Simulated scan of single mutants.
Amino acid sequence: MEMVGRVYGSEPGESGEPVEGHAYVELVGGPLDGQLLDVTGWSPDDIAGGALLITDTGLYGPGGRSDYIPEPRGGGRYVWNGDTP
């Protein structure tokens, strides 16, 4: 499956494109919808735990975090589970 989307955490001036040979999950819903999270090197337990990601565009503004959890039916996607300060 070809991944299309901007990689979460890409800095301005970087391409933001996925890197061949890396593993990604797609972020679905919430303020980071459509971005890809690089999980290269993560353990299966880490991947199963989801991710709490810093975002300036969530409910709590700059420095807030968005909670993404694995989609229940699998498929390499994390779904938005809400925001936290």
Rank of each mutant, 00 (worst) to 15 (best):
D67M: 14
P70Q: 13
I54A: 13
G74H: 07
D67G: 01
N81I: 01
D45Y: 02
M1W: 03
T57S: 14
V28P: 02
G21S: 05
L52W: 04
T55I: 10
S66I: 03
I69S: 13
S43C: 08
L36C: 03
V4T: 12
V39F: 04
G21R: 11
R73M: 13
D56I: 03
W42K: 12
E17P: 01
G82T: 05
W42A: 07
G49E: 14
V25E: 02
E17C: 04
M3C: 15
G50Q: 10
G64D: 07
V39Y: 02
V7S: 07
N81R: 11
G29K: 10
R6M: 12
G5S: 03
R6C: 05
E14W: 11
T55P: 11
D83M: 02
G74V: 06
V25G: 06
G49C: 11
V19Y: 04
R77G: 00
P62E: 15
G50M: 09
P85C: 08
G75R: 05
G63W: 07
V19P: 00
Y24S: 05
D33T: 14
D83C: 01
V4S: 11
Y60W: 12
R73H: 11
R65T: 13
G74L: 06
G61Y: 10
D33L: 03
I54P: 06
L32Y: 12
Y8M: 02
P44H: 08
G50H: 15
P12T: 14
A48V: 12
G30K: 01
Y24W: 07
L27Y: 06
S15M: 06
T55R: 06
D67V: 15
G58R: 09
P85S: 09
G30E: 10
W80M: 00
S43G: 10
P72C: 01
Y8A: 03
Q35A: 00
G9A: 14
M1D: 14
G61E: 14
D38R: 02
S43W: 10
D67K: 12
S10P: 00
A48E: 15
G49M: 13
A23N: 07
A48T: 12
T84R: 12
D38Y: 06
L59N: 01
L32C: 13
E14T: 09
T55W: 05
A23Y: 04
G30A: 03
T84I: 12
D56S: 15
E11I: 04
Y60I: 08
A51Q: 15
G82A: 05
G30I: 02
D33Q: 10
P70L: 10
I69M: 14
G41C: 09
S10N: 07
E14F: 04
G61F: 10
V7E: 12
E71K: 15
S15I: 02
E11F: 11
P12H: 09
G41R: 12
